[in-house]
Design a protein around this nucleic acid. Sequence first.
DNA 1: TTTGACATAGAAAACGTTTTCTGCTATTGT
DNA 2: ACAATAGCAGAAAACGTTTTCTATGTCAAA
Lengths: 356, 356
Amino acid sequence: MATIKEIAEAAGLSIATVSRVLSNSNYPVSDDTRARILKVAQELGYSPNLAARSLRTDQSSLIGVILDNFSSTWAPIIIRGLQDVLHSRGYFSMVVNIPWQIYSQSDVVQNLLGHSVDGFVFVETWHPVGEHLGLLNEKPYVTVHRLFHEPDPFSVIPDDVYNSTLTIDHLIQLDHQRIAYIAGHEEYFSSEERLTGYKQSLANVGLPVEQDLIFRGDWSITSGYQNSQRIFALANRPTAIAAANDQMAYGAILAAQDAGLRVPEDIAIVGYDNDEIAQVSNPTITTVQMPLFKMGRIAAENLLNRIHGKEHVATEQLIKGDLFIRQSSGDPAGADIRAHDYTRDSNIPDSQRTRR
Amino acid sequence: MATIKEIAEAAGLSIATVSRVLSNSNYPVSDDTRARILKVAQELGYSPNLAARSLRTDQSSLIGVILDNFSSTWAPIIIRGLQDVLHSRGYFSMVVNIPWQIYSQSDVVQNLLGHSVDGFVFVETWHPVGEHLGLLNEKPYVTVHRLFHEPDPFSVIPDDVYNSTLTIDHLIQLDHQRIAYIAGHEEYFSSEERLTGYKQSLANVGLPVEQDLIFRGDWSITSGYQNSQRIFALANRPTAIAAANDQMAYGAILAAQDAGLRVPEDIAIVGYDNDEIAQVSNPTITTVQMPLFKMGRIAAENLLNRIHGKEHVATEQLIKGDLFIRQSSGDPAGADIRAHDYTRDSNIPDSQRTRR
DNA sequence: TTTGACATAGAAAACGTTTTCTGCTATTGT
DNA sequence: ACAATAGCAGAAAACGTTTTCTATGTCAAA
């Protein structure tokens, strides 16, 4: 590995000058010497020692990314979005998985600071950042898809209220008047937001919000199944069920099938997330997808702006999602599972789509 | 951030001595001064500047992890396994997603070297490491779950031959005599290995290997569906189908249902991978799971051994998986989808299981 | 002319470590 | 009792950068 010093000798110049051109300083250097240095650097295959640079400038070009759960469906897509802009701007990320249960005990963040990261991204974490980590006052941070309730001025989150209305409005357009709702776990921020969307959609067209039609699940298939059984037992059975995620929607489908009800003819069902299960279940599930890749990109841009001291409007950013109409609400085209392949996330550039 | 110098002043000692105790050098230091230094360091909240350390020692405690596809089902679990041992040994990983299509053009690896990473892990990559990256001769590396055919002495891969026999032996025990096989894409290493396992199991019990019963898919649900249609059209219909992954097994289930066949009564079906789809499909799919978390751990240990110059037997390490018996091969207990929650990977410690 | 101002380049300090070298004291072996 | 050694601590160099300070020559304005 060639150093700046070797280049200086080879070019017959001082290391100061070499540094100035190789670090893109805006200190004036004649075109002549600049060209000579670049040429020599090229020939010697120079690549800067980032440890030395970091030591001198106290900037590492390293971003700490902290996850609650690496294996969630969303996290990898968000991270790809983050890295898409970070890499293009010369930054690297150090992604660490810290389950919220061991959050406070963990010294990982401390170690990240030892690497003098330039900032943090919290992805799908549980607690307000400052709560466990007072030390973060030193470094800029952003949060993506936060799970907690307290607002955070530097977060990029899906517009769950709006997204939820997409599925409910869709059902209303299909002339459903009585729509049951299976909410998610109440300790989740998203859960309450989606419920709000459900209520808004009904209110918008003058439909009553009946408490008897609102059920509480815990995101699991099982809870979707069990709540649906209760829904089917209602005296005046609703014609549609909206669930706060695709897992519960799938549970509803299983329950309907076990109860001898046809989906969507007897009961229409919609979900949320566009998880794999929504794309492969039988019938496929009408759902809404958060633009995770884009959210990652925006978060990274916000963070870099903060790091470089640019103006950043400190406010939550709500990102809208897209509706996917499939069989479970009555679109026969959803049958394409057997005929076509599917991809996971329409926000992924073609070059990065999964091959398998 | 306190430095070694400040601690030296506060303790009335030289920075050399402070460094020796704080870096766990084995240079002799009296218990007295060692205790004093540790106390002061504790009080001042010392955390070493890793850039400086890295500059001086040319070791960064950083590991580059290179992925072909972040969003695969397997990658996150492997990475968690990697990080489980890396973090406990004071290392951090820089995970980068480089699709094989842009592999050679990418300067990401070059940049990683600029960060003077101590080693590389290649996860699910496509090409033999050296092929595109001659520079790797400088740094130790290991590969996990490699997708290419050429053997690699430093790889940790699933024992696909053995794992495949688990599902076939299972079918044979259930008295199936004619078992069709849907193989994966032939350019994948795993694909051919799993096919070999199928043939071995048949040969072991003296069953003939009929070329007419071996079909070629491309991992997709669609290809499982279409190949199964051909299987059902055979004059002497097999009583079981084994697929090289769960997606194709699911395609087989859909095809069976569309053909009016009952699974498993008329046709038994087994898959491979224990993907989410195997756990939630109706019927649930008998399959085999690779111990991804463990593979990640072993790979990390191998790498650290190489880095620290310890003896490492340079040979592929084949890791055995576990059979999961479910409904699609005839186990009624698989019905538990409606009654119980499921988790993705039994190798994940409880504290890290997905919450959602 | 003279005076700045500017463009350009080098010398040297600094960032926070680790480690070699040097030196002192106390202990051991003869 | 004396040399050799071991234990311990400090001074200083080094790692590869960036950046301040200094120095030169050139050019435009007065």
